[in-house]
């Protein structure tokens, strides 16, 4: 298990988006509803790689992702190659 996620299941709306996008299929929808009446996502973190795909699509932003530390923290969403903005005129 290189990765691990923590779902705030009381705030989960059971939309299942995390379930579909997980490449390792480690997330399932629980059969027991939370206090808001939703069936929340749950996981045993079986094959989790810490890829953060689930967190990226979660509309409630309630998934925290941890990964085996290799010294360097890899951010789930890369800021992108810092290209200079095009068509940018200096402010007069």
């Amino acid at each position: 298990m290189a990765g691990k996620i923590v779902i705030n299941s009381e705030r989960c709306k059971g939309c299942g988006l995390c379930v579909v996008v997980c490449p390792r299929k480690t997330i399932v929808i629980s059969g027991i509803s939370n206090k808001n009446g939703y069936f929340p996502a749950q996981t045993d973190n079986g094959d989790c790689t810490g890829c953060a795909a689930c967190a990226v699509v979660c509309p409630e932003a309630i998934i925290e992702v941890l990964r085996e530390g290799s010294g360097r923290v890899i951010v789930a969403i890369e800021p992108g190659k810092e290209k200079k903005p095009t068509l940018t005129k200096e402010k007069a």
Binding site: K4, V56, E64, V65, V73
Partner: peptide
């Protein structure tokens, strides 16, 4: 483990 994704 290190947190690689959390609420901003």
């Amino acid at each position: 483990m290190k947190t690689v994704f959390e609420r901003t």
